[in-house]
Structures are given as structure tokens and as C-alpha cells.
Amino acid sequence: MSIFQYDFMVRALIGALVTGATAPALGTYLVQRRLALIGDGIGHIALTGVGLGLLTSTSPVLAAVLVSAAGAIAVELVRERGRTSGDIALALLFYGGISGGVFLVGLSSDRTNANLMAYLFGSPLTTSEQDLAVMAVLGAVVLAVTLLLRPWLFAICHDEEYARVSGLPVRALNLLLAVTTAVTVTVAMRAVGLLLVSALMVVPVATAQQVTRGFRATMAVAMAIGLLAAAGGIWAAGTYDTAPGATIVLVAIGSFLVVALGLAAWRTATRARTRRQPATGQPSTGEPPDVVLTRW
């Protein structure tokens, strides 16, 4: 682990760990709501913020937070309407966001392709101390919302109508979740980049729910997987000199495949064992198997 004797590697690691914890925590709610790819769209919108920040020589991170929060609120309002034409509205927002970003970065004095690539695919090795401080503050906000408000956010994501009849402030909670999604995207921008943010929101959750039984457990395991992927990705990128953001995401996807294959092998093994001893079958629930709904 000698690569971590360099300060920039340590900063890269810390930044990636903040991302690895926050993105899956927020992503659990998005996956629960079947909006797994919304983080990708918000990432597209955030690029316009980055462009604005670079063009006006202010903080690209701050501008990205503001623009992506506005975009996330717009997305939430489209979702609330629930119209099929919402798809078109989302396409306009997302592609408007990314092309606006590329356009504005091109206008700015800092118009190198490397700069654009850093925001799109991450550049954790260039994380400054100031970047880290911003990420830590924003990451703390994301964790506070996703962990402290879990019962309420679970309720609105699981069954919005029921939440409304429970008297919960559904709209306020939805908007809070939207803004928190935007903040998470900005936190993750440095480590994995705007185009790969969604992977860290979704893949660890998808990995976790293969083995978990409950919501809380899924969130905890997803965060653990996110942290492992972040640390493993930074280590591998530093050791083998690969692109760090992409390496983190590949480690996450690799862990998904390992769990999926391991689970399949385990199931095959148990099935073979029960076939040998047919007496110990499934405990009867007294109901026909055809009423069992699909596993989510």
C-alpha cells in the first residue's frame, strides 16, 4: 500500500470514500422508487453548472450544486405530474444540460479537453484540500438526510399515496430527496465524474439487494460495498496507473458479478442437496405457490 505515502493519493482516497458512502445511501431510495437512472440525468444537468462556474471564474462545484438542484426540482415536478410526455421533458433537460455544459466549457478560458474529461469521468488524483473540505460538508449533508430521515423517505418512496393519507409532507420530502440527489451528484463528481455518478448510486444497491431481506440492511450493505469499491478502485488505479473513476465503477460492477455468480452457485448446490433428501422440503405456508408474487 506504498502508494498512499503520497498526499494526493490520500486525498484521492478520502474523496472516493466520501463518494462511496453517500452515492449508494441516496441511490437506495432511487432504486426503491424505480428511478435508478435519474442520477445520470442529474449528472448531465450538473455539467451546465460546471460550465457556468468555469465561464464566470467562480466555483464550478458551487455552480454545479445550484444548477443540478434546480434541474432535480424540475425533474421531480415532471415526475409528480406522471404524464407520459414527461419522458420528452426529461430528454430535453438531460441533453440540454450536457450540451449546455460542453458549450459553456468551450467558451471559457479554461477550455482544455482534459478539463472537460475531468468533470465527465472524474479526476480524484487532483483533489485539493479545499475540494476535500467541500466534499466532506456536502457528504455530511447527504448522509444526514438519507440516514436520519430514512423512515419518512422510505414511506414516500415505497407508497406515495399511503404516505399522503398518513399526513406526511410528501411534496416537501420529494423535493428534499431531489435536492439531495443533486448534492450527491456534485459530491461524486470529483471521484467518478458526472457520467459515472449513477453507477455508484445503483450498482452497490443492486449488489446488496441480492443478499439482503430488508430496506435498512440493503442500504447498509450497499454503503459498505460502495466504500470497498472506492478504496479498491483508488488503490488499483494508483498501483496500475488506470483511470480512477472508471476503475472504481468497474470494481463495483465486478463485485455485483461475484455476488450474482456466487449466489447462483450456492442455489444450485442447495437445490442438489434438497433433491437428495426430498423429506426436508420447503415449509408449507398453507397457500398455493401460484399466489406468491415475484420477488423484488
Binding site: 437506495t28 432504486v31 422508487r33 399526513g167
Partner: peptide, 23 residues
Amino acid sequence: LGAGSGVPATVRELVSSGRLSRR
């Protein structure tokens, strides 16, 4: 139960959300 959720939830987690109106 709605269209089904993407993330598993235990029976207890679901039933507990009915308590939020009093919490």
C-alpha cells in the same frame, strides 16, 4: 402493494411506516 418496489423491505419495515402518522 404498489407496483412493487425495487428494494426489498421486511414486513416489519413496511408495517412500521404505518406508525409515522403518530410519530
